[in-house]
Design a protein around this nucleic acid. Structure first.
Lengths: 184, 184, 184, 184
DNA sequence: CATGAATGAGGCTTCATTCAT
DNA sequence: CATGAATGAAGCCTCATTCAT
C-alpha cells in the first residue's frame, strides 16, 4: 500500500499499474493477489488506511479542550503542515477518492465516505455554536466548504506553489473562515 | 467533444475510451485523429472549451454594476444552478483538470490554468475592498477557497445529493463566505 | 515521386506513409490516387523511374569506345560519385527493391528486374573477353558480384562512412575486380 | 525468435506482424512482451542470435590451418550451402539489417555491426598477404566487396534461382575473387 | 508464502483508401 | 483537377489477472 501511494502520487490514478506497484514494493506481481482481491480492492484499502492515518494524526495533535475557533485554526495549521510531510499520501488519497468507481459507473468512495469526517466536523461546529463562540450557520454546508478549502489549500501548496509558507496560508485561511462563522 | 464530456461524466477519466467516445458521437474511431492529435489533446481541448463556455455563461448573467457582495451571491446562485443544467460539463471538467498529466508526470492543466479565473476573482474582491463593501483579507487565498467551495458544492449537489435545492445551498454558502469577507 | 524518394531515404520503407509523402510534395493526400492506383504502384513507379534515371546518367557519361577494363573502372568511379550526388535516390531504390512484395509474399521487383542491367553488364564482359582484354570467367556470376560490390560500396560510402573519398574507394575496388577478370 | 525468422522470410520486414509471429509460435500475443521490450527489441535480438549462429556454424566447419585461398574457397562453398539449409535465417537476417532503424531514422544494425565480421575477414586477408599467398590490396575494400558478393549470391541462389547448384556458383565466385587477390 | 510465465481483452494510434464536393 | 473529411482494418502495446510450481 505504501508503494501504491507513491505510484499514485507520481503517475496519477490511471497511470498506476500493479506491475510497477509490485516492483516498487520489491515483491513479485502475483503477491498482490494474495493480499488484495482486486486492483480496486487495493485502491480502496489504501485509501481507507491512508485516510485513517491522516485523520488520527491530526486528531491526536489537537487539544479538544480549547475553544472551538482555536481548535479550527490549529487544525488548519496542522493540515497545512501535512502538505510538506505527507504530500504523497494526500495526493494519492485525493486521486483514489475522485477516480475509484463501481463497475456500473457510480463512485465507490463517495463523499459519503467522508461522512464520518463531515459528522465529526459538524459536531465540532455545533459545539462552537452551543458554547457561543460560533454564530448560527448551516453546519453541513460549512463542513463541506471547509473540506473544499482544505483540498484547494493542499493542491495549491503541494503541487503548484511549494515555496509558499504553509503556516502563512493556513492563518490567512483561518482568518477568512473564522470571520465567516465566529460570533462577532 | 460533446461525446467526450458525456463519457467523462458517466465513466470517469480512466474509464473513458476513445472507442466509446466515437461510438457515442456516431463517428468512426479514426475520425478522432483527424481533429485531435492525441487523446490528451482531445481532453485538453474539451476542458478548455468547456471552461470557456461555463465562464462566459456565468459572466454574461451577472450585473457587474451591483455592489460586489451582491455579485458574489448572485454568482454562487448561478453556479449552483449549473449543477442542474450543466452537471455533465462540470463533472467532466473537474475530472480532466485533476487527471490530465504531462508525460513526465506533472499536471497539464494545473491550477495555473485557473489563473485567469483566479485573477478575475481577485480583482472583483479588490474592487469590493476599494469600494468599502469588503473588509481587508488575502484575496489570493480567498479566490482559491472560493473555488474550492464551489467545487465541493458542485460535487455535493451534482453527484451525491441531487435532491438538495441548489439555491438553498448557494444562499447558505453565500452567508458563510460573505460573513467572512464583508465589512461589518 | 520525388517526395517519395526523400521519404524513403529518411524514414525507410515501412516508415513511409503516403500522408507524409503528400505533405512533403505539397499536395493533398487524395491527389496521390489520381496518379497512382496504389501505394505499391507508387513504389513501383518510383523505383522504375529512379532506376532509369540513374542508369541513363551513368551510361551517358561513359565512352563505350574505350577498352572494357577502362570502361569498368570509369563506371565504378561514376557510380561512387553518385553516392554524393544521388544518395537519396540510391537508398530509396534499394529499399523499394528489397521490400516491395506481391500480396502472396513473393518479391515484386525481383532481381529479375535487374535483368536488363545484368544483361548489359554481361554483354560488356563478353565483349571484353572477345576483345581479349578480359580472361575467361562466368559472366553471370561476375555480373551479380559486380552488382553486390556496388551495393555495398553505396552503403559503405553513403550511410556509414560518408567521409571516405569515393574515388579512392572506387579505384581500390576496380583494382580488385579487374585483377580478378583481366587477362594477365 | 524462430517464428520471427520464418515470418520475416515469408512476409518481409514490414509484412511482419507480431500477431502472426505469436500465432506461429503457438503462444499468446502478450507473451512476446514478457521476453522482449519491443518489436525492435525482438528484431534486434533475433538478428544477433541468427548472426551468431550462422557465423559459428561456418567458422567451426573451416580448417584454419590451410592456406588462406583454400580457406576462402571453402568458406564460400559452406556459405553457398547455407542457402539450402538456412535460407530462412539468411533472408531474415538480411531484412532486419536493412530495415531496422532508430527512432531518429538512423540505422540500428549498421554495417558497423558487421564490423566484427569485417575485422575477422580482414585479418584473414592480411594473414594471406603475410604468408605470401595473397597479393597486395586494400583489405577493407575487399572485406566489404566479399560481403556484398555473398549477399548477392544468397539472394540469387536462395530466392530467385533455387535450382542453380550452390557449389557451382561458389566455385565460380571463388575463381573470380581469388583471381583478384591471389599472388600470381 | 511467493514467484513469474502466460493469457486475453482492450486501449491508442496509424494509415491506406474512398468519396462527396 | 484537387481537396480533405471520413472510414475501417490492422498494428503495437499495456495491464489486470490466473495458475502451475
Amino acid at each position: 500500500m505504501a508503494a501504491a501511494v507513491k505510484e499514485l502520487a507520481d503517475c496519477g490514478y490511471d497511470g498506476l499499474s500493479l506491475t510497477r506497484v509490485a516492483e516498487r514494493a520489491g515483491v513479485s506481481k502475483g503477491l498482490i493477489w494474495h493480499y488484495f482481491a482486486d486492483k480496486d480492492d487495493l485502491m480502496e484499502s489504501t485509501a481507507k488506511a491512508t485516510m485513517t492515518t491522516i485523520r488520527d494524526r491530526i486528531a491526536n495533535s489537537l487539544d479538544l479542550a480549547e475553544p472551538v475557533p482555536d481548535i479550527i485554526r490549529a487544525a488548519l495549521r496542522r493540515i497545512a503542515a501535512l502538505t510538506v510531510t505527507h504530500r504523497g499520501e494526500l495526493t494519492a488519497l485525493n486521486r483514489i477518492v475522485h477516480n475509484l468507481r463501481h463497475p456500473d459507473g457510480t463512485q465507490r468512495l463517495t463523499l459519503e465516505d467522508y461522512e464520518e469526517t463531515y459528522q465529526a466536523q459538524e459536531s465540532l461546529f455545533r459545539r462552537g455554536q452551543t458554547e457561543g463562540t460560533l454564530r448560527d450557520f448551516d453546519t453541513r454546508v460549512m463542513a463541506i466548504t471547509y473540506q473544499g478549502a482544505i483540498d484547494m489549500m493542499l493542491g495549491y501548496l503541494g503541487t503548484s506553489h511549494p515555496h509558499i509558507n504553509p503556516d502563512d496560508y493556513a492563518d490567512k485561511l483561518a482568518d477568512i473562515l473564522l470571520a465567516g462563522i465566529q460570533r462577532s
